[in-house]
């Protein structure tokens, strides 16, 4: 009898442990955003708190327009480096098929930026905690701490981290005074405009888009505009199969 009890205890403890481990690794608590069909939304329990997200309606995004990119790069003093080997980008436009995979019917260029992943592999690679996920879901870089090991750049599966191979100031013609530049030897990427959010403004790219193609809001708030759009449309994410849980979505 005694023996059976113990066995039962061990079995339960083991199951509890497994469940705990699954939860900790995000296996069992799948967040809802990866289910990109509207039917799946209802079945998924919501998450608490703030998680900023972005949605591109690429149907409204005209070929050849780069206003969002220009606005972002100007606001954040992103240097304009021509060489492919040294290029720095917070936002860029790429072939939709290459970006979003075969589900994307169109090969027209669509905008891309850091996905502010809920499970960011860049953060798991950083030896100093200089790239990390904030409580509002923004994946930020501490430029005061980054040692320039480029592990994050290597481990971002979307190639959204850039490194300052040379002095960025040399490649800045008309800097924005309110926002700092970076220096040679650190990485940089889109900050989801945390500098503007804190002043109650929308991201620079969102404001710059004349077509209203970019929505920005709290993914965890069922009444937000972005959630309404997500629930009413078919959307895609970049490489969802990697389990990084991107916070940037696309309507094709």
């Amino acid at each position: 009898m005694m023996k059976n009890d113990r066995r039962e205890f061990i079995r339960k403890a083991g199951m509890g442990l497994l469940a705990g481990m699954g939860a900790a690794s995000g296996l069992l608590t799948g967040g809802g955003f990866e289910r990109t069909t509207s039917a799946a939304w209802a079945a998924v329990p919501g998450e608490e708190g703030l998680r900023w997200g972005m949605l591109f309606d690429t149907r409204r995004c005209p070929e050849g327009c780069t206003l969002c990119i220009e606005s972002c790069h100007h606001t954040h003093n992103v240097p304009d480096i021509a060489s492919l080997e040294g290029k720095i980008e917070w936002m860029h436009k790429e072939n939709g098929r290459e970006l979003l995979g075969s589900l994307c019917a169109s090969t027209a260029a669509v905008p891309a930026l850091c996905n502010h992943c809920a499970e960011p592999s860049c953060a798991r690679a950083c030896p100093t905690g200089s790239i990390f996920r904030r409580t509002d879901g923004i994946v930020a870089i501490d430029y005061h701490r980054c040692v320039g090991c480029r592990s994050c750049m290597q481990s971002c599966p979307y190639g959204e981290v850039s490194f300052n191979w040379s002095d960025p100031r040399a490649a800045l013609k008309n800097p924005t005074v309110e926002y700092p530049t970076r220096q040679r030897g650190v990485v940089e990427k889109c900050n989801f405009c945390s500098d503007r959010l804190v002043r109650g403004k929308k991201p620079s790219c969102v404001e710059a888009c004349p077509e209203g193609a970019i929505s920005f809001g709290n993914l965890n708030d069922p009444s937000s505009e972005i959630r309404r759009l997500l629930e009413s449309s078919e959307t895609l994410q970049r490489k969802p199969e990697l389990g990084t849980r991107p916070s940037v979505f696309y309507i094709i």
Partner: peptide, 25 residues
């Protein structure tokens, strides 16, 4: 080993849910 597994789970910095208070600062 299990303790190690848990330590490799990169979470979110800070525990508290984000406050919007800062936006007023």
């Amino acid at each position: 080993l299990m303790a190690l597994l848990f330590s490799f789970h990169a979470g979110t910095e800070g525990e508290a849910p984000a406050s919007q208070a800062a936006q007023a600062a």
